[in-house]
Design a binder for these strands. Structure first.
Lengths: 341, 341
DNA sequence: TTGTAAGCGTTATCAG
DNA sequence: CTGATAACGCTTACAA
């Protein structure tokens, strides 16, 4: 017996509808609908009858029809550039969890870092009439901006900060982080800095701010190499190799992610350099491994889970008519000084 | 001006519908619908008129209505236990990419490892009438199985193998991997094995097979400690510490993930143990860092991207009426012998 | 508390 | 190639 032909083979008799359930229960479709969606409004005995009929028929509601009629889909679209990137994935998971608890589902859209097709992606998303949307970043093409404003959809932008979000926002300042790292380096006396950095927009923001802090300082030198996204341990190792190839000496290597930092540390150790004695290393993200690494990685922590939870909560609240007290949340960040630098 | 009130504040005039576009273009709604979905069937000049009207009105199709009428949603549901887990996330990304290229969107559902609520989750999913579904794993409650069979929905099960999938399948044999690792250990002369292992079902499958291979062998000892999912570097370090605490000596530590293996290696090095001379370490997954680690990690590679691509392709093909040649794909695996053991 | 009527915005189908 | 009509399966609004 070819078991795998048991599914998808024959066309099923006919889909069970609300009307079928109603007929079996001896009620009107409307009452069945109420028993499902607002049981408090229906007599308990009736609800029980409905539930029995649902069991008997194997009824599965059709949210397309329901959404069309009610203009509520219980769908939230989440747009991120990548998910095979430890930074975003925790936030997405948190959003998904919180959303599920509130009775919503997540339509996840991965756009890549080229924001060219972001507008088209968003249009496709909007055609599903989600109740709300989470968007990574705050820089959108004019066209997209217009579409979004026109859609008048509850929206949360994340992973960045601006006083003028489209709607709501949960993020942090990449500039301030860059500054903070720069100040920390000065304070520690790191003058000759190597940068292993990814090319994405927000990473560049941090880099520029870091560079500005060091700009005016006497004796400060700054040299960088690029790493691809998603960042990897291998790219970190290669990054340090490249930096060292020129024969220059560095006090510290600053990386745009902990993953790169881990690679830099590994490469340093492989070359017999002691971290941080011979070379300090600083990361970004405070990923799970950072504090357990040997040496533990000095880095900047973002509360990625909270970002997701807050985004989901703000969205659900707004959708359900509870205007959130604050629409712009700066999550801040924490410099976690550990062993590596 | 409170910019963030510009969105979601006022109720928009009224949603633009197909009828609005038709009126502006001087055509019937049906012709507009055709111009959008099957432009080959419509006179080019007419298509142009429609496009102009769409631009002018800012029309965004309503897929709820479209899906309700056509019984096609261009939605694929993907169910995974976790995404903050490097193993699944690559596959999900691959599915998403391939699906997007085919004109589908992904409804991502994260269930956690407790399959208790899997049935309920799937019911909620089905209420959106996806065109197809990707399900992680092959062990489903009877109720879920029935629901799925009844839905007669194109379906791909992934990450496991069985001769009797519900519909289609792309996976690999955890048993064979466990065996292979066991044989490799014997061949290398590893007799006293420590296991640092996660508790999820598929990991247990590998563990059992591994244990069976070593069972009969003289002098073989096997001791294990548990690690939580998602696995982490920290858990790997702790795992080795626990194993070593009893004072016992090990030839090799086998881990249920590369992440754990990385932690074990790090802990070993911190304790002055040389890997692999004093202690061999074996991982699973061949994550990006495995080959770049110091020492490079011996592990088992799965083609996670191909799994996702194949799943998406099989699904899209079946939905579009091209019966796939093969409905059960064993992706196999590769033991990658590197420096760590 | 329950029922009736009228959509919600598309597309399948058949006619022109 | 284009149009008219009848669903698709549910919920809103109102009536009983």
């Amino acid at each position: 017996m070819k078991e795998h032909s048991e599914l998808g083979g024959v066309a099923p008799a006919r889909t069970v509808t609300l009307e079928d359930v109603a007929r079996l229960a001896g009620l009107s479709p409307m009452t069945v609908s109420r028993a499902i969606n607002k049981p408090q409004v229906v007599r308990p005995a009736t609800v029980a009858r409905v539930m029995a009929a649902i069991q008997a028929t194997g009824y599965i509601p059709n949210l397309l029809a329901g959404g069309l009629a009610s203009r509520r889909t219980r769908l939230i679209a989440v747009v991120v550039p990548q998910i095979n990137n430890s930074m975003f994935v925790d936030t997405v998971q948190a959003i998904s969890d919180r959303l599920a608890a509130r009775g919503y589902q997540m339509l996840l859209c991965v756009t890549g870092y080229s924001s060219d097709n972001e507008a088209e992606t968003v249009n496709t998303i909007l055609s599903r009439r989600p109740d709300g949307m989470v968007l990574t970043g705050i820089h959108h093409h004019a066209e997209l901006r217009k579409t979004l404003l026109n859609a008048a959809l509850p929206l949360v932008e994340i992973w960045d900060l601006t006083p003028t979000p489209l709607d709501m926002l949960v993020g942090f300042s990449h500039e301030k982080i860059g500054q903070r790292i720069g100040e920390y380096c000065l304070q520690r006396g790191y003058r000759s800095l190597g940068l292993v950095w990814a090319g994405d927009r927000r990473a560049q923001l941090r880099r520029r701010a870091l560079a500005e802090v060091l700009q005016g300082q006497p004796g400060c030198r700054l040299q960088g190499v690029n790493a691809p996204v998603p960042t990897s341990l291998g790219a970190g190792r290669q990054g340090l190799s490249q930096l060292l190839a020129a024969g220059q000496r560095f006090d510290a290597i600053v990386c745009s992610s902990d993953t790169l930092a881990q690679g830099v540390i590994m490469e340093a150790q492989a070359r017999g350099l002691r971290v941080p004695e011979d070379l300090a290393v600083i990361g970004f993200g405070d990923l799970a491994f950072a504090e357990h690494n040997q040496p533990a990685i000095t880095t900047v922590a973002i509360d990625r889970l909270k970002m997701g939870e807050l985004a989901a909560t703000l969205l659900a609240d707004k959708i359900e008519g509870q205007a959130p007290a604050e629409a712009v949340v700066d999550l801040g960040f924490t410099l976690r000084v550990r062993e590596s630098g």
